[in-house]
Amino acid sequence: MSTAPSGPRHGFVEVADRVFHARFPQWDVGVGLVLGRDGAVVIDTRASGVEGGEVVTAVREQFPHLRIGHVVNTHVHFDHTFGNIAFAGATIHAHDHVARDLESDAERIKGLFAADPGDGPELGYTAADVADVLATRLRGPDRTFATSATIDLGDRVVTLAHRGRGHTDGDIAIEVPDADTVFLGDLIEESAHPSLGSDSWPLEWSETLTSHLGWIGPATVVVPGHGRPVDEAFVRGQRDELRSVGEVLRERRLAGMPLADAQREPDGRLPYPLEHLAAAAACVWAQLDPEAEPAR
């Protein structure tokens, strides 16, 4: 168990009308909070049961009489879902694929942490935080959907939308139309470049963001999975970077370049370090020719 609390850096900060955001030190994960007449929605729950409990405590300290009726997971990864277990009484919403993959992805990440806790100080976590991750019991979503869903808070409606694959195949946007605010999870990151892991879709990610941009205007507050809220221009810029990644990797695959060469050959069009694109390259190789490469 963690020996000290790790609450939000500056509490829940209002980024739009009754829409709040907090950043927590471990993995620099953001948590959203949308208030309505009939309760509240929490968006993402951090990386363990302990950390989820800290979110509940932070909400109660700032809003003593608030009822958390709903939780939404932006995607399947542990740093956004493992805290679900702390939200007793709330209905948890997520994409269908989160329900499908939560147990297998949890087994994967727990195996990785058990084998190698990693470089904790760089990402704000400690050995105790890793122990909390490993000890967490999973709680999956209660309600899932394929393309869209809504949560009625009495005086406002929150919309959940899946518009394509990117960071994972189950990424969703949480839209608060009356406040012109959108939470995009790890489809967008502000405190680091996007994470292109072994379950990402580099050839489709930019088009998924293009689809989301149809609901984002110049004044829209866009909340990423990690980092500070951003605007439309930031989303467009990161979309263009991800398009470049997909184009370069596609060219290399179709040209017949061996995967190992593609993972180490520089290209001025690539916006991110090569060492952070190795998994993305493997995903592209598998997607374009599943029979020729090991399954992702």
Rank of each mutant, 00 (worst) to 15 (best):
P5T: 05
A22T: 02
G214L: 13
R269N: 00
V15R: 02
E232T: 07
T181Y: 05
V221D: 08
A94W: 02
H212Y: 15
V245Y: 00
E207I: 06
D199W: 10
D169N: 15
F24G: 01
R137Y: 02
G89K: 12
I216E: 01
L249H: 03
E190G: 13
Q238E: 15
P290H: 06
F145K: 09
G140I: 03
V158T: 07
H167P: 00
W205Q: 05
A135L: 09
D28N: 14
H276E: 15
G246V: 00
V72C: 08
D289H: 12
F63N: 02
V13M: 12
A278P: 02
S104C: 12
S2L: 15
V130P: 03
H93N: 08
A128N: 04
A22F: 06
L138C: 03
P5S: 08
D116L: 06
D180N: 15
T144K: 01
D28K: 10
R18W: 10
E175S: 13
Q263M: 14
R46A: 01
T91I: 14
D38L: 13
G197Q: 04
A278G: 07
P229T: 02
D129R: 07
V71G: 06
S48E: 02
G214V: 05
H226G: 11
A88E: 15
C283N: 15
P25S: 13
T3S: 14
P266F: 09
A219N: 13
H70Y: 13
A16M: 04
H226C: 03
E291F: 13
R143Y: 10
V59W: 07
D289E: 14
S6K: 14
T147K: 13
H70R: 06
S104V: 14
G154E: 05
P5K: 12
R163H: 10
D129K: 02
V235G: 07
V221P: 00
S148D: 14
R23W: 04
D152S: 08
R18N: 12
H93P: 05
T168A: 09
M257F: 06
A255C: 02
H10Y: 05
R236G: 13
T220V: 07
T208M: 12
P294V: 10
A99P: 04
E251Y: 08
P194A: 04
T181D: 01
L277F: 00
R156T: 12
H70I: 05
D231E: 13
R239D: 11
R269G: 05
G111K: 06
P141N: 00
R296E: 11
L209G: 06
R269M: 04
V19D: 00
V130L: 01
T168R: 08
P121T: 07
G237N: 11
D38H: 11
R67G: 07
I85V: 15
E122L: 14
T3Y: 12
I174Y: 01
L277G: 00
F234M: 00
D28Y: 09
A262R: 10
L138P: 03
R163C: 10
G89P: 10
V157L: 09
Y272L: 03
L66G: 06
P290C: 00
A94D: 03
T150L: 08
A278I: 08
G268Y: 03
A262F: 07
